[in-house]
């Protein structure tokens, strides 16, 4: 017989709970989806990073991953489709003391938002971009996008896709990001560590997080469920830190090169702006206040 005392002991609270808007749960993500896993890594990274979370701002666009901003208990902005990066740019430049993280999906950041992300990387704006790549548009029911591997079945490629896909790390490397990494939702420890690294690294940082979409991608392509995808990530991922980003393109169920590909230093936007203006204007230069609200 079970003693009453054995039942009343409350289970230990999940350490990430205080950082989530638990009054908004349950979330919208499907069973087997990787977005929640990536969010768990993110919150654990925040805890370990010892960052001042009152100064953290999370910005999302539109889509399943775009819902992240709505679930985190920080200053958080759910913006328009594709425009999280320029919103984050304005936020960061007007108050450089903020730590600004863009959390969004592959379609949002690289199709409709593609122009913005390459320019933010070029400028080296001090924002951190976490891109959950589930290989299609999930929120709208599973349409193909710029990361969909050729031959994949989606609702808008019913006979299999034929468009070549973007290699996101290569694109971000070429555009000038100072940190570029790729992990999958199987690699929770490595992903968490990478997130801590970008929180501490100045400049435009980018992490691609491969995530299952069992409802729309795996199911339509007869690739099993979320667990099968985890097994695939485990078996076919190869860690190659420093791999040339031109060599890390993905294909449908082929080998996945993961790791930290780029980690370099370049002056960030505001540093360049101040230096140029100070050099040209001399005594006439007036430093922007720490926050433009002052």
């Amino acid at each position: 017989m079970i003693e009453t005392e054995d039942l009343v002991e409350a289970p230990p609270q999940n350490p990430v709970e205080p950082y989530l808007r638990t009054d908004r749960l349950p979330h919208i993500w499907c069973p087997g989806c990787g977005i929640g896993t990536s969010l768990n890594c993110f919150v654990r990274a925040l805890i370990e990073s010892k960052e001042d979370l009152d100064r953290l701002a999370v910005v999302s666009g539109i889509g399943c991953s775009g819902r992240v901003a709505g679930y985190v208990a920080f200053d958080s902005f759910h913006t328009t489709h594709g425009r999280a990066v320029p919103f984050a740019t304005g936020l960061k430049l007007a108050n450089p003391a903020l730590k600004v993280v863009v959390y969004s999906g592959d379609g949002d950041l690289f199709a409709i938002g593609g122009n913005h992300i390459i320019h933010a990387a070029r400028r080296n704006v001090d924002i951190k971009v976490i891109c959950v790549n589930n290989f299609l548009y999930a929120m709208t029911g599973g349409q193909s996008g710029p990361t969909t591997p050729p031959s994949s079945i989606t609702t808008t490629s019913p006979y299999g896709g034929f468009e070549p896909a973007f290699n996101l790390p290569h694109l971000m490397d070429a555009a000038g990001a100072v940190y570029v990494a790729r992990w999958t939702t199987f690699h929770v420890r490595q992903l968490t560590r990478a997130m801590i690294e970008i929180l501490h690294k100045p400049g435009f940082c980018f992490i691609e997080v491969l995530s299952p979409c069992p409802t729309l991608y795996e199911r339509r392509n007869k690739l099993g469920d979320g667990l099968d995808t985890m097994k695939y990530y485990k078996e076919k991922s190869k860690i190659r830190h420093g791999a040339p980003t031109s060599e890390v393109a993905l294909d449908k169920r082929g080998e996945i090169i993961v790791g930290k590909f780029v980690d370099r230093n370049r002056p960030e936007y505001l540093e360049l702006m101040r230096a140029q203006h100070r050099a040209q204007l001399g005594d006439r230069f007036v430093e922007a206040p720490a926050c433009l609200c002052d």
């Binding site: 594709g82 919103f87 740019t89 304005g90 960061k92 430049l93 913005h116 609200c293």
Partner: peptide, 24 residues
């Protein structure tokens, strides 16, 4: 003392200002 940024298009310009406003 302030910031001007020339954005990549008007979509970006019109949302960058909204980010700046929420920063204060």
């Amino acid at each position: 003392g302030g910031v001007f940024i020339q954005m990549e298009d008007e979509l970006a310009a019109s949302i960058a200002i909204l980010g700046a406003v929420w920063a204060g």
